[in-house]
Design a protein around this nucleic acid. Sequence first.
DNA 1: TCTTGACTCTATAGTTACTACAGAGTTTAC
DNA 2: GTAAACTCTGTAGTAACTATAGAGTCAAGA
Lengths: 149, 149
Amino acid sequence: MKIGELAKRSGCSIQTIRYYEKEGLISAPERTEGNFRLYNSVVLEKLSFIKNCRALDLTLSEIKHLVSLQNSPETPCEAVNEMIDTHLLVAESRIEDLQKLHGDLKQLRLKCGNARSVDQCGILGELLPKPERSPSGTRNERSPSGTRK
Amino acid sequence: MKIGELAKRSGCSIQTIRYYEKEGLISAPERTEGNFRLYNSVVLEKLSFIKNCRALDLTLSEIKHLVSLQNSPETPCEAVNEMIDTHLLVAESRIEDLQKLHGDLKQLRLKCGNARSVDQCGILGELLPKPERSPSGTRNERSPSGTRK
DNA sequence: TCTTGACTCTATAGTTACTACAGAGTTTAC
DNA sequence: GTAAACTCTGTAGTAACTATAGAGTCAAGA
Ligand SMILES: [Zn+2]
Ligand SMILES: [Zn+2]
Ligand SMILES: [Zn+2]
Ligand SMILES: [Zn+2]
């Protein structure tokens, strides 16, 4: 099959397939006389493997590592386990971060209080380091007159 | 203060500060005779604002939008609210994704079973679409002899 | 005064995992 | 024979920075 069919069957785009080849994740296939890539169905499994790994957020270089481990089956499997464990930790800490983020956003959202204009809204004020309005004379940054482009 | 001190005080790197200037997030400061950027303390607040927004995962273009809203305080605040709401949804769906990911990884980790070699480990097998070994004669992809570079 | 070191300047390239062309060649159908 | 559909290589773009290279500037010491 040519690359277009492979793309449809694998769910990877044509460019992605060529990219994976360039990066050494799949091996370069044979070519037709007209220089078209010609695949057999084995590559479907390899692409599926890559997609599964990507769905687990493994990087391409990690996947490359796994692929090379597949080619030397007698290697100890510790490296694989460590990679998974690392990703478990990464995922956990990202979840924590996002949950904090979500809480912060929710708090922030409450600051609006149905104001209508930005300066009454409270959201933008909340994002500033401190409301600390300069008492007088230090207002040079937002000049009261003049059109600022 | 020059850019090095600003970097230390703000916690942004020098390159990041210059980058923000190039992207229009902070305005270009005065220069010394020798062409060095010269900042006053106001920019510290602006960088803090940006950092707060980045911590909430707002993109630079969204932050740019917020900055422009700060400069026109009479604008209705709906746009701000919508941005926050969108990010709440994004955060929620990302948390869900990551939790699924985490579960998948944990499952995967259990497949090792204290094997010692990659081919007995079960983790790599789990990432393949199907174990489906080709019965015979289709092993042309992993040539038994020859050094593969 | 000269020199050394620390600092800053601009411009450019690299990062990640793709996506989107441009411009050329190939194949297939009619 | 020609038009449409497909494929090829190579390049540039994405987001938000980071990391150089090579040149210029500034402050302090000998
Ligand atoms: Zn990783
Ligand atoms: Zn509001
Ligand atoms: Zn957004
Ligand atoms: Zn194992």
